[in-house]
Amino acid sequence: MAALDVVKNYYECFNQKDWNGMLALVSPDIRHEPNQGEARIGIEKFTAFVHHMDESYDEKLTEMVFFSEPSGQRVAVEFVVNGIYKKAEEGLPAATHQTYVVPAAAFLEVTDGKISRVTTYYNLPLWIKAVSE
């Protein structure tokens, strides 16, 4: 399966909250580089992150635009995150099921048919403003 197809399937699973389907598309040694903080290495840490995010946020991605490069290993995707903040995170505002809409992007690398790296970017101050109003 081409890298672009793998990544599209990954995000389809995300939007359907099919965590097992999503995790099946990532490499056992996945490198997850979040907007803030240290990278997570390995499927165990990434799985824990996915489940933690599911507890704290209810998100759907829209306006997705995918880009791939000639080697077919890297894919970029731009999207809008439409979410509900369900459970407070340490150091962030209290969660009262506030809704938010923020632009974001991700850069993914696919190795041997599995996603081996996910790097995500979004504007955290914009998100904080959205859930604080």
Rank of each mutant, 00 (worst) to 15 (best):
A2M: 10
A3G: 08
A3F: 07
D5E: 15
D5I: 10
K8A: 14
K8N: 13
N9Y: 03
Y10H: 11
Y11A: 00
C13H: 08
F14Q: 09
F14T: 09
F14L: 11
K17S: 10
K17Q: 08
N20A: 04
N20K: 07
G21K: 05
L23T: 01
A24R: 02
L25V: 05
S27R: 09
G37F: 04
E38T: 12
I43K: 07
E44G: 02
A48K: 02
D54M: 06
E55T: 03
Y57L: 15
D58G: 12
E59K: 13
K60W: 05
V65A: 13
F66A: 13
F66G: 14
S68D: 15
E69T: 14
E69Y: 15
P70L: 10
S71W: 02
S71D: 15
S71T: 05
S71A: 08
G72E: 00
G72S: 00
R74L: 05
V75S: 10
V75W: 05
V77L: 14
V77K: 10
E78V: 14
Y85L: 01
Y85Q: 08
K87H: 07
A88D: 03
G91H: 05
P93I: 06
P93Y: 07
P93A: 08
P93E: 02
A94F: 11
A94E: 15
A95E: 08
H97Y: 11
T99N: 06
T99Y: 09
Y100E: 08
V101C: 12
P103E: 11
A105Y: 08
E109P: 02
D112F: 06
D112N: 09
I115A: 06
T119I: 12
T119M: 14
T120G: 10
Y121P: 00
Y121F: 09
Y122H: 03
L124C: 00
